[in-house]
Design a protein around this nucleic acid. Structure first.
Length: 524
RNA sequence: GGGACGUUAGCUCAGCUGGUAGAGCAGCGGACUUUUAAUCCGUUGGUCGCGGGUUCGAUUCCCGCACGUCCCA
């Protein structure tokens, strides 16, 4: 049994650090002592890096060694040491920077004795700097011939195994830095995510939309049917809610005359976690005055095709083995039509509350006898129909009961001018012509209040301030929300929302490093 | 909330009907001047997630808990 060093310190009786040292870590600390003893800074910050792996590869990757001998320029590269292959006096090391990897050749005869002694103390995982000429090895690998090597930051923990890498999903999410170091595909996903969001901004700017930011902390969490997170502002002495949607604020801006606005930001919903749900998620909402939900269907097709063409060159891609075709026009179908298309039901059944109850019970769904017809339709749709909507489909004409902020359809006021976009059986976007009649809006809020009293925690709250805004007249407007995480999932072929969110929500598995300070009574 | 599966060395994984654990990589020592999962020789490393129970004896069987993944609600 090997004795272990255990360092431990406490604060308010909590263990704030407790580190059992493995042999591996002791080993590294001995190396660190050696480097320090040689008078070398372990964490210098004066290195100036001129080049990246990708840039050197682009410039010289296609050239033969013969041509490279003509190149006398000195290049420099910094990054993480990912592999060391020793051959006596010569070594090959693999250096990984943000753009990829490049190999460096370290030869005892080509660098100073001090540098070579330092190199012998380096470990896989350290951040290093090399500079020298570029050449190609016998096997044709582009390589920097090091004339100088520096340590820029010393790593104490060993990296995961070089061949299998890091696969344990829990560690990948909890220690995303390790995931990013070890799995180049992960880095690729987040580069792509950033690119998609930039494309959306380009697309919106092109159409004269203004990007804005509205409150994340709201006195009332409105704009969607969801349970909010609650917090408290000490100085104001008031409860606040993390927003579940920016909708009502964005429409205030449209009323204010901004006419075309969008926001890409986080929403927070206090609900379950799944491969398609994270409690904080990114949503784009946009509002366009003098447009209708039908205009937004066209706009949505254009946006998705614009993104796909930029990413793939064509408006087609594969998601989890399914070929998705974004070619315009996408199917447009009402909620009722969708139910009829996928289930064996006579059209009249969906227009009659009691028949609809019977029908949904035949499908094995739990439905209250007195449930409103519109809600029954949505239960049937969500449980039995939406999973079938694989190719992009706009589902339109949602019941007024489940659409408290949408404009009624002129011909059939029990339904609203609203659509949801489904791809691969998942809701990707939700849009409608906005309800801008303050009287109707008040009625809808009252209807929601009754739902709330009946026990529906997700029913919308009365918002007099918002109604007052509408009373100043909001132009006829259409608005839409697009789930950015789900969009990125589609375009990066990711099976889980956690694969497109850098730090997905997980339960803490260890006590907090620092104990919470005792709360003052008035802040409780 | 329910179900299934998982948790063994730093990482990736074995471990049979119960007898206190193995491999590969990493590490450490050695050889090696063009390798790229380098190779060769030698070698260290484990609270088997945590807590109970059954048993002479539990990584293994049973119960509970924690964390995770997937499916369902």
């Amino acid at each position: 049994m090997v004795e272990k060093n255990i360092a431990k310190c406490t604060l308010f009786g909590w263990d704030i650090c407790k580190m059992e040292e493995s042999e591996l870590i002791r080993n590294r600390k001995e190396k660190i002592a050696g480097i320090r003893a040689a008078g070398i800074d372990l964490y210098p910050n004066d290195a100036r890096v001129k080049n990246t792996s990708a840039e050197l590869r682009a410039r010289f990757g296609d050239l033969e060694q013969e041509s490279l001998t003509q190149v006398e320029e000195t290049f420099s590269l910094a990054g993480r040491l990912m592999a060391i292959r020793n051959f006596g006096k010569a070594s090959f090391v693999s250096i990984q920077d943000r753009k990829g990897r490049l190999q460096a050749f370290i030869h005892k005869g080509l660098i100073t004795e001090e540098d070579y002694a330092l190199f012998k103390r380096l470990d896989v995982g350290d951040i290093v700097y090399v500079s020298g000429r570029i050449f190609k090895t016998k096997t044709g690998e582009l390589t920097i011939e090091a004339r100088e090597i520096r340590l820029l930051a010393k790593s104490i923990h060993p990296l995961p195994e070089k061949w299998h890498g890091l696969t344990d999903v829990e560690t990948r999410y909890r220690q995303r830095h390790l995931d990013l170091i070890m799995n180049p595909d992960v880095k690729e996903v987040f580069y792509k995510r950033s690119r998609i969001i930039k494309l959306i901004r380009d697309f919106m700017e092109e159409r004269d939309f203004l990007e804005v930011e509205t409150p994340m902390m709201q006195a009332q969490a409105g704009g969607a049917a969801a349970k909010p997170f609650k917090t408290y502002h000490n100085a104001l002495g008031m409860e606040l809610y993390m927003r579940i949607a920016p909708e009502l604020y964005l429409k205030r801006l449209v009323t204010g005359g901004l006419e075309r606005v969008y926001e890409i930001n986080r929403n927070f919903r206090n609900e379950g976690i799944s491969t398609f749900h994270n409690p904080e998620f990114t949503m784009m909402e946009f509002y366009m005055a003098y447009a209708t939900y039908e205009d937004l269907m066209d706009l949505t097709e254009e946006l998705f095709i614009f993104i796909a063409r930029n990413l793939f060159g064509v408006p087609q891609f594969t998601y989890q083995g399914t070929e998705i075709d974004l070619k315009s026009p996408w199917q447009r179908i009402t909620v009722k039509e969708a139910i009829i298309q996928y289930l064996d039901v006579a059209p009249g059944v969906l227009d009659d509350q009691s028949q609809a109850v019977v029908f949904s019970r035949q499908l094995g769904l739990e439905v209250d006898e007195k449930e409103a017809l519109g809600k029954i339709l949505m239960i049937i749709f969500e449980e039995r129909v939406e999973k079938n909507l694989v190719q992009p489909t706009f589902v339109t004409q949602y019941p007024v009961e489940v659409s408290p902020l949408s404009r009624r359809n002129t011909l059939n006021p029990d339904f609203t001018d609203r659509f949801e976009l489904y791809i691969c059986g998942k809701e990707i976007a939700n849009a409608f012509s906005e309800l801008n009649d303050p009287e109707d809006q008040r009625g809808r809020f009252l209807m929601q209040l009754r739902e709330r009293e009946a026990g529906d925690e997700e029913a919308h709250q009365m918002d007099e301030d918002y109604i007052k805004t509408l009373e100043y007249a909001m132009p006829p407007t259409a608005g839409e929300g697009i789930g950015i995480d789900r969009l990125v999932m589609l375009f990066t072929d990711s099976a889980s929302i956690r694969d497109v969110i850098l730090f997905p929500q997980l339960r803490t598995n260890t006590p907090l490093s620092t104990p919470p300070l005792p709360l003052k009574e008035r802040e409780l």
